[in-house]
Design a protein around this nucleic acid. Structure first.
Lengths: 224, 224
DNA sequence: TTAAAATGATAGTATTACTATTATAATATA
DNA sequence: TATATTATAATAGTAATACTATCATTTTAA
């Protein structure tokens, strides 16, 4: 039931396109599983190599280091969300409906969408929640930004801000709201799971329902 | 012109209270400067030891590892902001005014407040912007949370949410808004500096003015 | 079928993140 | 003032990490 999209990313992110070979796809697949299981800090290329019966050296032929692998994964996620938004809002012209669909994508894209064989979107979403911000909180941001390593996020922000401006052309902070809705969705899912005192949503509630309702409330109120 | 406060933190964060000795204060002082200069990832106890003419072993007597040092610094910041909010809102009963002061503290507490000799609050704020979220995005969050390592942040969120509920008792998401205002302030200062396409504020503008105005706009609109 | 490309196997290096031991200096107490 | 206590320095050592290099072998493509 997999869809036939191939997400193509800035080729500075990798040394060799991992989506085009068996080993490359195995690297993507299992790095997602391992980072989700054990966290980014304890994840190493050596452990990954062991797990997929390959070698450190082979993995290094695809990715310069684990930070760039994370950047690759996170960019993949950003683009995948963008893609879903495009597809799912294609038939709707009402920007308010579009924004609802966008928010739904932020909160639960990974749950109700078929995916690519070698990517577990739900676990990738977990990685984005837990480790995503590390991709752009590094001393090398400016250099990496100039090389286009955050383009997918900026594109996503741009397309959401367009919808926001459609809803309310006078709203002065469309980009801020766009990124805030994304980061807020992620943060509060994470908080609900690990630091519940920092949020108002409990994980008990009908799963993603509470988050979606909350983020929609914020968006609606701000754009009223 | 230093004020006579000593911020006391959860004693699980350190092996030996660094604020009580010369070497300990030097560790705090210079770790802030070094992390601000070179980023958290490249920062090591060895480099710090070299810089302060001490040894790795001595630093390890104060902090278990660099992650706990970061946690210490970030907690210090959270408590310091809490303290400033308490002091600066003491004479105001209007919760709307209080929230304005809170937001001002989030955005520019480090600029217009005298501090503690061994803490450069402005650089510490930079660290919080760039590395702060790493303090609670770790595989060990749940354990660390149970040991009270995020209490300062939760206390801060709590006190802000109280003000929010004072302004609008019917507002359903006081904690969410409290943390969001804090994280939003930090994120968008960082974005303006490094990823300007993700925000609407430019750093050119009269410094913190633009940020404060924006965050206040969000808060006002949501609580209206 | 043969050349080229991809992968595996193995080895090696510098740095990191520690721990341990002993010596020396500073401070507190009797 | 002598002495005990504690803090710090000096030094050494270990396991793991983050790589790089080389060469052999397998797979694929011309």
């Amino acid at each position: 039931m997999s869809i036939e999209i191939k997400i193509s990313l800035n080729d500075g992110l990798y040394l060799k396109e991992p989506q085009d070979s068996k080993l490359g796809r195995k690297i993507i697949n299992h790095s997602i599983l391992m980072i989700d299981e054990c966290g980014f800090e304890t994840f190493t290329f050596k452990k990954l190599a062991l797990r997929i019966n390959s070698t450190e050296a082979s993995i290094y032929r695809y990715f310069e280091n684990k930070h760039l692998l994370l950047l690759f994964l996170v960019n993949w996620y950003w683009q995948w969300v963008s893609y879903l938004i495009t597809v799912n809002t294609r038939n709707d012209n009402d920007p308010k409906v579009k924004l609802k669909i966008i928010i739904q994508s932020f909160v639960s894209a990974s749950l109700d969408n078929p995916g690519v064989e070698y990517v577990n979107e739900s676990k990738l979403h977990n990685i984005v929640l837990s480790e995503g911000m590390k991709a752009y909180h590094t001393k090398d941001v400016d250099n990496e930004n100039s090389r286009g390593f955050f383009k997918s996020y900026k594109d996503l922000a741009r397309s959401v801000s367009d919808v926001i401006s459609e809803i309310n052309p006078d709203f002065e902070y469309p980009f801020t709201l766009a990124t805030n809705l994304f980061e807020m969705s992620n943060n509060h899912i994470y908080f609900a799971r690990h630091l519940p005192k920092l949020t108002d949503i409990t994980v008990r509630e009908n799963k993603e329902d509470g988050f979606e309702k909350m983020v929609n409330y914020f968006a609606d109120k701000l754009l009223a």
